[in-house]
Nucleic acid binder design. Structure first.
Lengths: 222, 222
DNA sequence: ACAAAAGTGTTACGAGTACACCCATGG
DNA sequence: CCATGGGTGTACTCGTAACACTTTTGT
């Protein structure tokens, strides 16, 4: 069933930079391409926008299809529209980025676990299309937003210690933080609260567990 | 000459929020629609992305077609992709915003000057499509960016006084500024320099004229 | 008792804000 | 000489950054 237009139309896709933090490293989710072009190369998850779904909804759907995760923080990043991005036809891509807390997340790939993997952002392979550029931009946006909002909390599981949270901030921004100043700062923002529970692990004093006051909310600072 | 695809494709347009500052007011350029849908209503300038031009290039081209201006600061804002934005067919719009210095700018409309006009952002009419929402978002982005960068300077003509510049900042951000603090601040940023000329107008001491050190450049602060 | 991470307060510095008077010009 | 906007310096405030020791637990 063909679709005909009087003027040529581009195809529109969404591509998603899915971030998570694991073992002291910021990671992105990549999918190995199964067909041409760039067969076998790593690329961002994503797909074509259906004719009756909004672009935002497409990103949500693609994210769920690749990771099985719903209710994840997702934000539009930028639209990449160079005419030669894809060799098959004109494809315009609306890029998004997502923040996934690593609490027992298992990837649901099309067929095989070998097709999807978390890569440390420092050591990415050469990506298909212009996806390398998209990741670079997403990383810059994330680092910037960590400074003037509370997005960082979205990487956290339901409960966490302040040391965990500080470690996350240090990992994503690269820069070390003073423990006392960090705690003063995060508590003054009034976005986390004690759960009353403690986490005892190892031969040291157990840490108080905290949770977000309004889960999923991002507070803009200043 | 028809174009056929195996899957339905959306149309893609760019819409541009062209800002300028004139007589103590922030203004946007609107075009009166000549055909359906929303015939006779005011809308943002813009048009369809050609199949062999980049989305950015489309925005540049549309801006020049409507205003005759080249080399204007243009930045991608956001992509609006709800399926029912346009009643004719599925249209995804990549929105941009532009900053135009008002130095003898004359609009070049399709046929008639009555079709294009500067409107004060406070008192806009009801706009076609979702263009009202686009303007709101552009205004928010501009105000935010005024705080952490030197975009504001792009509203200035080639040479200007510091009082002019201060007036601009007060107009765009709404908030009044202390004269001495404003001067200290802008000079400490090291982005303007004296031209050596003075501007004498009216019965008072002539003001020193300044120019941007690197015209067109936007410096990120902090 | 010792190793290992949790938890806690005070001082110093710098950026931003508040504030008032003299200067140069045209009429 | 007076009305009008141009131009200049200092003191205070507040948020950010630097910095070290005690507490609680497991082994």
């Amino acid at each position: 069933m063909p679709y005909t237009y009087t003027h040529p139309h581009p195809a529109v896709t969404t591509d998603i930079v899915v971030f998570t933090v694991e073992t002291q490293a910021l990671k992105v989710l990549l999918i190995r391409r199964k067909g041409p072009p760039h067969e076998g190369q790593w690329a961002l998850p994503g797909g074509f926008v259906r004719i009756d779904e909004s672009v935002d909804a497409c990103a949500v759907r693609e994210l769920e299809e690749e990771t099985g995760l719903k209710g994840i923080y997702l934000e539009q990043l930028y639209t990449f529209g160079d005419p030669d991005r894809d060799t098959r036809e004109r494809v315009i891509s609306v890029a998004y980025y997502a923040l996934v807390p690593l609490q027992g997340l298992e990837l649901r790939s099309g067929t095989d676990a070998a097709d999807a993997a978390w890569w440390t952002v420092g050591g990415l392979p050469v990506l298909a299309f212009d996806h390398g550029r998209i990741v670079t931009m997403a990383r810059a946006r994330l680092t910037a937003k960590m400074e003037y909002s509370t997005v960082g909390l979205l990487f956290m599981p339901d409960s966490f210690t302040l040391s965990d949270l500080q470690g996350l901030y240090e990992t994503v921004s690269g820069r070390p933080r003073d423990k006392r100043n960090f705690r003063k700062w995060i508590l003054s923002l009034d976005v986390v609260e004690e759960t009353g529970e403690r986490k005892a692990e190892g031969a040291h004093r157990p840490a108080m567990l905290y949770r977000m006051k309004t889960p999923g909310n991002v507070k803009i600072i200043k």
